[in-house]
Protein backbone atom coordinates (compact mmCIF):
# COMPACT_ATOMS: atom_id res chain seq x y z
CA UNK A 1 0.00 0.00 0.00
CA UNK A 2 1.28 3.41 -0.92
CA UNK A 3 1.23 5.77 2.04
CA UNK A 4 0.47 9.48 2.01
CA UNK A 5 3.85 10.13 3.63
CA UNK A 6 5.68 8.29 0.86
CA UNK A 7 3.98 10.29 -1.89
CA UNK A 8 4.46 13.52 0.03
CA UNK A 9 8.17 12.72 0.27
CA UNK A 10 8.42 12.34 -3.51
CA UNK A 11 6.28 15.40 -4.18
CA UNK A 12 8.08 17.63 -1.68
CA UNK A 13 11.48 16.62 -3.08
CA UNK A 14 10.29 17.74 -6.50
CA UNK A 15 8.61 20.93 -5.29
CA UNK A 16 11.54 22.17 -3.22
CA UNK A 17 14.01 21.27 -5.98
CA UNK A 18 11.85 23.23 -8.45
CA UNK A 19 11.80 26.26 -6.17
CA UNK A 20 15.59 26.25 -5.82
CA UNK A 21 16.15 25.82 -9.57
CA UNK A 22 13.65 28.57 -10.33
CA UNK A 23 15.78 30.92 -8.24
CA UNK A 24 18.43 30.64 -10.97
CA UNK A 25 16.18 32.22 -13.59
CA UNK A 26 17.98 35.13 -15.29
CA UNK A 27 21.17 34.40 -13.31
CA UNK A 28 22.89 31.64 -15.29
CA UNK A 29 26.24 32.12 -17.05
CA UNK A 30 24.70 31.83 -20.54
CA UNK A 31 21.22 32.13 -21.99
CA UNK A 32 21.26 28.47 -22.96
CA UNK A 33 21.73 27.51 -19.33
CA UNK A 34 18.91 29.81 -18.23
CA UNK A 35 16.70 27.88 -20.63
CA UNK A 36 17.98 24.49 -19.42
CA UNK A 37 17.63 25.22 -15.70
CA UNK A 38 14.14 26.61 -16.21
CA UNK A 39 13.30 23.46 -18.13
CA UNK A 40 14.45 21.22 -15.31
CA UNK A 41 12.62 23.39 -12.77
CA UNK A 42 9.46 23.03 -14.87
CA UNK A 43 9.83 19.26 -14.97
CA UNK A 44 10.27 19.10 -11.20
CA UNK A 45 7.31 21.40 -10.69
CA UNK A 46 5.16 19.31 -13.02
CA UNK A 47 6.09 16.15 -11.09
CA UNK A 48 5.38 17.92 -7.79
CA UNK A 49 1.90 18.90 -8.92
CA UNK A 50 0.98 15.36 -9.96
CA UNK A 51 2.43 13.85 -6.81
CA UNK A 52 0.93 16.35 -4.39
CA UNK A 53 -2.48 16.02 -6.04
CA UNK A 54 -2.25 12.27 -5.59
CA UNK A 55 -1.09 12.64 -1.97
CA UNK A 56 -4.11 14.84 -1.31
CA UNK A 57 -6.44 12.23 -2.77
CA UNK A 58 -4.84 9.42 -0.76
CA UNK A 59 -5.18 11.49 2.37
CA UNK A 60 -8.86 12.08 1.63
CA UNK A 61 -9.10 15.32 3.59
CA UNK A 62 -9.92 17.51 0.61
CA UNK A 63 -6.47 19.08 0.24
CA UNK A 64 -5.36 19.79 -3.32
CA UNK A 65 -1.86 20.51 -4.66
CA UNK A 66 -2.00 24.15 -3.59
CA UNK A 67 -3.31 23.41 -0.10
CA UNK A 68 -0.39 21.02 0.38
CA UNK A 69 2.23 23.31 -1.14
CA UNK A 70 1.13 26.59 0.38
CA UNK A 71 -0.58 25.79 3.66
CA UNK A 72 1.76 23.33 5.36
CA UNK A 73 4.55 24.54 7.64
CA UNK A 74 8.14 23.38 7.37
CA UNK A 75 7.71 20.69 10.04
CA UNK A 76 5.04 19.10 7.83
CA UNK A 77 7.26 18.91 4.74
CA UNK A 78 8.72 15.48 3.93
CA UNK A 79 11.51 16.33 1.46
CA UNK A 80 15.13 15.29 1.95
CA UNK A 81 17.53 17.95 3.22
CA UNK A 82 19.60 17.90 0.02
CA UNK A 83 16.96 19.69 -2.07
CA UNK A 84 16.45 22.55 0.39
CA UNK A 85 20.14 23.47 0.64
CA UNK A 86 20.89 26.87 -0.91
CA UNK A 87 21.95 26.97 -4.57
CA UNK A 88 25.49 28.08 -3.80
CA UNK A 89 27.62 28.63 -6.90
CA UNK A 90 26.89 26.78 -10.14
CA UNK A 91 29.08 23.85 -9.02
CA UNK A 92 26.95 23.30 -5.90
CA UNK A 93 23.80 23.41 -8.04
CA UNK A 94 25.31 20.87 -10.44
CA UNK A 95 26.36 18.55 -7.59
CA UNK A 96 22.88 18.71 -6.04
CA UNK A 97 21.26 18.00 -9.39
CA UNK A 98 23.61 15.13 -10.24
CA UNK A 99 22.96 13.34 -6.95
CA UNK A 100 19.23 14.05 -6.93
CA UNK A 101 18.59 13.15 -10.58
CA UNK A 102 20.52 9.86 -10.32
CA UNK A 103 18.35 8.94 -7.32
CA UNK A 104 15.07 10.19 -8.80
CA UNK A 105 15.62 8.32 -12.05
CA UNK A 106 16.09 5.00 -10.25
CA UNK A 107 13.26 5.66 -7.82
CA UNK A 108 10.83 6.58 -10.59
CA UNK A 109 11.96 3.59 -12.61
CA UNK A 110 11.10 1.35 -9.67
CA UNK A 111 7.72 3.02 -9.15
CA UNK A 112 6.93 2.84 -12.87
CA UNK A 113 7.09 -0.95 -12.55
CA UNK A 114 5.30 -1.00 -9.20
CA UNK A 115 1.81 -2.08 -8.18
CA UNK A 116 0.33 1.35 -7.55
CA UNK A 117 -1.00 2.14 -11.00
CA UNK A 118 -1.48 5.81 -10.36
CA UNK A 119 2.08 6.22 -9.17
CA UNK A 120 3.33 4.03 -12.00
CA UNK A 121 1.67 6.38 -14.49
CA UNK A 122 3.28 9.45 -12.96
CA UNK A 123 6.68 7.78 -12.65
CA UNK A 124 6.53 6.53 -16.22
CA UNK A 125 6.49 10.17 -17.32
CA UNK A 126 8.96 11.57 -14.83
CA UNK A 127 11.58 8.85 -15.25
CA UNK A 128 12.32 10.13 -18.77
CA UNK A 129 12.71 13.67 -17.47
CA UNK A 130 15.04 12.54 -14.69
CA UNK A 131 17.23 10.79 -17.25
CA UNK A 132 17.61 14.13 -19.04
CA UNK A 133 18.37 15.97 -15.78
CA UNK A 134 21.00 13.38 -14.96
CA UNK A 135 22.55 13.74 -18.38
CA UNK A 136 22.67 17.52 -18.08
CA UNK A 137 24.20 17.42 -14.59
CA UNK A 138 26.72 14.74 -15.58
CA UNK A 139 27.90 16.81 -18.57
CA UNK A 140 28.42 19.84 -16.37
CA UNK A 141 30.20 17.75 -13.74
CA UNK A 142 32.66 16.72 -16.47
CA UNK A 143 33.11 20.25 -17.81
CA UNK A 144 33.66 21.74 -14.39
CA UNK A 145 35.67 18.86 -12.93
CA UNK A 146 37.92 18.61 -15.96
CA UNK A 147 37.79 22.26 -17.04
CA UNK A 148 40.09 24.82 -15.41
CA UNK A 149 41.93 24.64 -12.08
CA UNK A 150 39.35 26.95 -10.55
CA UNK A 151 36.36 25.01 -11.82
CA UNK A 152 37.95 21.75 -10.62
CA UNK A 153 38.47 23.20 -7.16
CA UNK A 154 34.90 24.49 -7.02
CA UNK A 155 33.39 21.22 -8.29
CA UNK A 156 35.38 19.11 -5.84
CA UNK A 157 34.37 21.38 -3.00
CA UNK A 158 30.72 21.14 -4.07
CA UNK A 159 30.85 17.33 -4.21
CA UNK A 160 32.44 17.23 -0.74
CA UNK A 161 29.84 19.60 0.64
CA UNK A 162 26.79 17.81 -0.78
CA UNK A 163 27.91 14.18 -0.45
CA UNK A 164 26.93 13.79 3.25
CA UNK A 165 23.33 14.73 2.37
CA UNK A 166 23.03 11.88 -0.13
CA UNK A 167 22.71 9.13 2.50
CA UNK A 168 19.25 10.32 3.41
CA UNK A 169 18.06 9.62 -0.15
CA UNK A 170 18.29 5.89 0.54
CA UNK A 171 16.32 5.61 3.75
CA UNK A 172 13.74 2.88 3.27
CA UNK A 173 15.01 1.75 -0.14
CA UNK A 174 17.80 -0.38 -1.62
CA UNK A 175 18.82 2.03 -4.34
CA UNK A 176 22.25 3.12 -3.13
CA UNK A 177 24.38 0.50 -4.95
CA UNK A 178 22.76 1.37 -8.28
CA UNK A 179 23.13 5.06 -7.54
CA UNK A 180 26.84 4.62 -6.80
CA UNK A 181 27.23 2.73 -10.04
CA UNK A 182 25.85 5.79 -11.86
CA UNK A 183 27.61 8.52 -9.92
CA UNK A 184 31.09 7.08 -9.33
CA UNK A 185 32.11 6.79 -13.00
CA UNK A 186 30.97 10.38 -13.63
CA UNK A 187 33.11 11.66 -10.75
CA UNK A 188 36.06 9.57 -11.91
CA UNK A 189 35.85 10.81 -15.50
CA UNK A 190 35.56 14.36 -14.20
CA UNK A 191 38.86 13.80 -12.33
CA UNK A 192 37.04 14.31 -9.02
CA UNK A 193 37.62 12.39 -5.81
CA UNK A 194 34.64 10.46 -4.48
CA UNK A 195 34.31 11.32 -0.78
CA UNK A 196 34.80 8.53 1.76
CA UNK A 197 31.83 6.95 3.47
CA UNK A 198 31.40 6.65 7.19
CA UNK A 199 31.41 10.34 7.99
CA UNK A 200 28.71 12.85 8.85
CA UNK A 201 25.27 11.86 7.52
CA UNK A 202 22.64 14.46 8.36
CA UNK A 203 19.01 13.32 8.14
CA UNK A 204 15.50 14.03 9.38
CA UNK A 205 13.73 15.53 6.37
CA UNK A 206 11.34 12.60 5.93
CA UNK A 207 10.14 13.17 9.50
CA UNK A 208 9.87 16.92 9.11
CA UNK A 209 13.12 17.87 10.87
CA UNK A 210 14.79 20.15 8.35
CA UNK A 211 17.72 22.53 8.03
CA UNK A 212 17.28 26.19 8.89
CA UNK A 213 17.00 26.92 5.17
CA UNK A 214 13.59 25.37 4.51
CA UNK A 215 11.55 27.83 6.52
CA UNK A 216 12.95 30.75 4.50
CA UNK A 217 12.33 28.93 1.25
CA UNK A 218 8.72 28.29 2.24
CA UNK A 219 8.25 31.84 3.50
CA UNK A 220 9.03 33.06 0.00
CA UNK A 221 6.99 30.36 -1.73
CA UNK A 222 3.91 30.81 0.46
CA UNK A 223 3.85 34.53 1.28
CA UNK A 224 1.39 35.73 -1.33
CA UNK A 225 -0.95 32.76 -1.20
CA UNK A 226 -1.21 33.03 2.59
CA UNK A 227 -1.77 36.80 2.51
CA UNK A 228 -5.08 36.26 0.69
CA UNK A 229 -6.77 33.41 2.54
CA UNK A 230 -9.33 31.58 0.43
CA UNK A 231 -8.68 33.62 -2.74
CA UNK A 232 -8.49 32.04 -6.21
CA UNK A 233 -5.64 32.80 -8.55
Amino acid sequence: MTTVEEVLGLGDDALVAAQRLAQWTARAHELEEDVALANIALDQLGAARLLLSYAGELEGAGRDEDALAYLRDDREFRNVLLVELPNGDFAVTVAKLLFLAAYQRDRYRQLAAGEDERLAGIAGKTVKESAYHLDHAALWTLRLGDGTAESHRRMQSAVDEIWPYTYELFEGNELRPGWLATVEPVLAEATLTRPDDGGWAPRGGREGRHTEHLSYLLAELQVLHRAHAGASW
Binding site: Q19, L31, A38
Partner: peptide, 26 residues
Protein backbone atom coordinates in the same frame (compact mmCIF):
# COMPACT_ATOMS: atom_id res chain seq x y z
CA UNK B 1 7.62 36.76 -8.97
CA UNK B 2 8.36 33.15 -9.98
CA UNK B 3 9.32 32.05 -6.47
CA UNK B 4 6.26 33.77 -4.96
CA UNK B 5 3.63 32.89 -7.58
CA UNK B 6 0.38 32.27 -5.70
CA UNK B 7 -0.47 28.83 -7.12
CA UNK B 8 1.61 26.02 -8.58
CA UNK B 9 -0.16 26.38 -11.91
CA UNK B 10 0.67 30.10 -12.11
CA UNK B 11 4.24 29.35 -11.09
CA UNK B 12 4.60 26.85 -13.94
CA UNK B 13 3.08 29.23 -16.51
CA UNK B 14 5.29 32.12 -15.43
CA UNK B 15 8.43 29.99 -15.40
CA UNK B 16 7.63 28.80 -18.92
CA UNK B 17 7.01 32.38 -20.02
CA UNK B 18 10.32 33.68 -18.72
CA UNK B 19 12.01 30.70 -20.32
CA UNK B 20 10.40 31.67 -23.65
CA UNK B 21 11.93 35.12 -23.29
CA UNK B 22 15.40 33.64 -22.99
CA UNK B 23 14.56 31.66 -26.12
CA UNK B 24 13.48 34.83 -27.95
CA UNK B 25 16.76 36.43 -26.96
CA UNK B 26 18.55 33.48 -28.52
Amino acid sequence: WITRAPSLKRKAILLAKVQDEAGHGL
